[in-house]
Design a binder for these strands. Sequence first.
DNA 1: TATGAATGAGGTTTCATTCAT
DNA 2: GATGAATGAAACCTCATTCAT
Lengths: 201, 201, 201, 201
Amino acid sequence: MAATLTVYGMDDTPRGKLLSAAARLFRVQGYDRTTVRDIAAAVGIQSGSIFHHFASKEDILFAVTMEVIRFNTERMRLATEGVADPEQRLRGLIRAELQSIVGDTQEAMIVLVRDWRCLADDKQKEALAVRAVYEGYWMQALNDLQVEGRLDADPMVMRRLINGMTSWTSNWFDADGSLDMDGLTEVILQRAVTANGGTSA
Amino acid sequence: MAATLTVYGMDDTPRGKLLSAAARLFRVQGYDRTTVRDIAAAVGIQSGSIFHHFASKEDILFAVTMEVIRFNTERMRLATEGVADPEQRLRGLIRAELQSIVGDTQEAMIVLVRDWRCLADDKQKEALAVRAVYEGYWMQALNDLQVEGRLDADPMVMRRLINGMTSWTSNWFDADGSLDMDGLTEVILQRAVTANGGTSA
Amino acid sequence: MAATLTVYGMDDTPRGKLLSAAARLFRVQGYDRTTVRDIAAAVGIQSGSIFHHFASKEDILFAVTMEVIRFNTERMRLATEGVADPEQRLRGLIRAELQSIVGDTQEAMIVLVRDWRCLADDKQKEALAVRAVYEGYWMQALNDLQVEGRLDADPMVMRRLINGMTSWTSNWFDADGSLDMDGLTEVILQRAVTANGGTSA
Amino acid sequence: MAATLTVYGMDDTPRGKLLSAAARLFRVQGYDRTTVRDIAAAVGIQSGSIFHHFASKEDILFAVTMEVIRFNTERMRLATEGVADPEQRLRGLIRAELQSIVGDTQEAMIVLVRDWRCLADDKQKEALAVRAVYEGYWMQALNDLQVEGRLDADPMVMRRLINGMTSWTSNWFDADGSLDMDGLTEVILQRAVTANGGTSA
DNA sequence: TATGAATGAGGTTTCATTCAT
DNA sequence: GATGAATGAAACCTCATTCAT
């Protein structure tokens, strides 16, 4: 499904190429250890030229952050839209979040988590506002599931536990291993949904 | 139980005080954004004097890392030693890991996860070797549990999922909230252990 | 009298608007702290377009300098032309110089004094050559006054003292204050011309 | 009299040497055109080392400013202290101000006038507060002179005119010329004091 | 003429580390 | 052990100027 989407701002324009290169470098080296020279070199321009596209180094981090949040929020919307069964919706959300963490936006997601604190407070707030929509999809699905008696923990706590499980996959999941993304989705889903209602698998 | 332990190297000596101060500063600001001047100021000495105690700034990070790994490995040993029931052992491990992440070694644990990549490769290897013992306790408990048919997923995958859940608590767990550490331990434990006879596998 | 004059090059053409904007910005921020982007923005074009009108940033400063020198030299000519009495001529010169410093060419005059050193040596010489005519009007009046025994100091020194008094007004004179430009002219004139028969010399 | 004074902070210490070198460079090239590398090179250290002595480049300008204001305020005090005759006091003030502008603090005084605007607003205010004492000596002398009927203009205006005359000397006065500093002092004094009361000369 | 992306030299400042005292 | 001045490399960023479109 996500195959038809592209990360909005990471296109063929100079700005887009800068953003992709920065996301990769930030992931590999960390934000603080990535110099603007590194980024410039990665797209074949001089370091000074970066500042025609971004006001500051932090502004690049912010742009990466915002793009990936917006993109993944859109992905969550698509994953849940028109799906009535909350378990099915939750499955879609888990699958989509895994996709974002170990799949197409992998680079940026790791940066998002690890270098979050490198953003100034006001930038953090701005990003969190957009992020709220994203979390809304999750809470809706989990609350609906609870109403149906198929969730055996507090929805908020459950969201945090799932978030921990999905985030951490960036440290170990191997796309070429014996467990694929769909398989992992089911394993995680089972941590949340009670057996008795009879789910799927 | 942890009350009688102290992190080995973080004592009253100049070196120990330096280590505690560094762990805190690293957690709040990140390793890269913490200057040796910051650390020196925090214990009331001049920045040049630090180099009588540590060979380099990275050496401080390494020392923090090793101390906290050793300390928590010891804690895992105490939590499982002499406990026969694997579920009981797993409960102890979860409880201990939560304690390390949101409790007494909180500062250093966050640093350990987030600033891991700031260590040179050989230092990382050295630390991983010690870490292996730590992970051994987990795998033993999970394997035992599987043998008894009370684990409904692959032990290795399950360890990773638990690790994700516990690590992520540093982003949200509030010791003063309605859910305490024991309660959280049970919620996490239930994600791993099947009710009775085991459902799937 | 100056009402019918306009600073030659500061007209409605793109070049003229650029010059006016530059003069103002130079005065407020200083030459070095004014960027070509500032100047371009002030007239609503892009910074690159400036170089279709001027060869360099320094060239803009030079143009401002030359325009204001030429304009004020012309003003001095008008102020003295056909006036026989040297005291009357001196009065006209003082009035005209005050007008240039705190009146219509205020912006550029301050720049002229303060950012003079930002011009390359050859540009300075070129400007000084034009400036010589300007100073000629002064020396003629002061020399004539001395011949009549109505100047109580060396003409050259007197010119410098007057120049100091007039230049400095940019730091304090308030057009809305109780002392107007004509009043100030008389006060300054009295510093130079002896009451009647001349006191000392 | 000033021969026994030294500019307080411009001594043999690293900081003092930096200050002297900076004052000279600022005068010759202007503040904006002087790089910290220039200043460092002038005293034989690396540019980075400057920041052990001053927090920023602007801080150096501020220090130069404050030193010269304090020093010359002290000089004004010495020039007027215990002198009863206001004309005599005024003579001392003019002589002292000339001394500061074309004599020992020449470098810094030119900088003070020309690069004043390079100081941030709060720094300007701080300096102005100290400067107020300096101006106080002038106003006292001029007011006293007016009371005695020996001043033929408003004291405040007269101070400004004198200030203009003395400041401007930096553009023309030649210590080796036919007019020496004492002679110039008398010429300027005569611009202020009325002849009738019988002054001196 | 106008644009705006790119240049590239150079600016101020930071900071881990050294070392004479 | 401690100090604090000094180093020197490298960081982010600025800006006059160029040039293809």
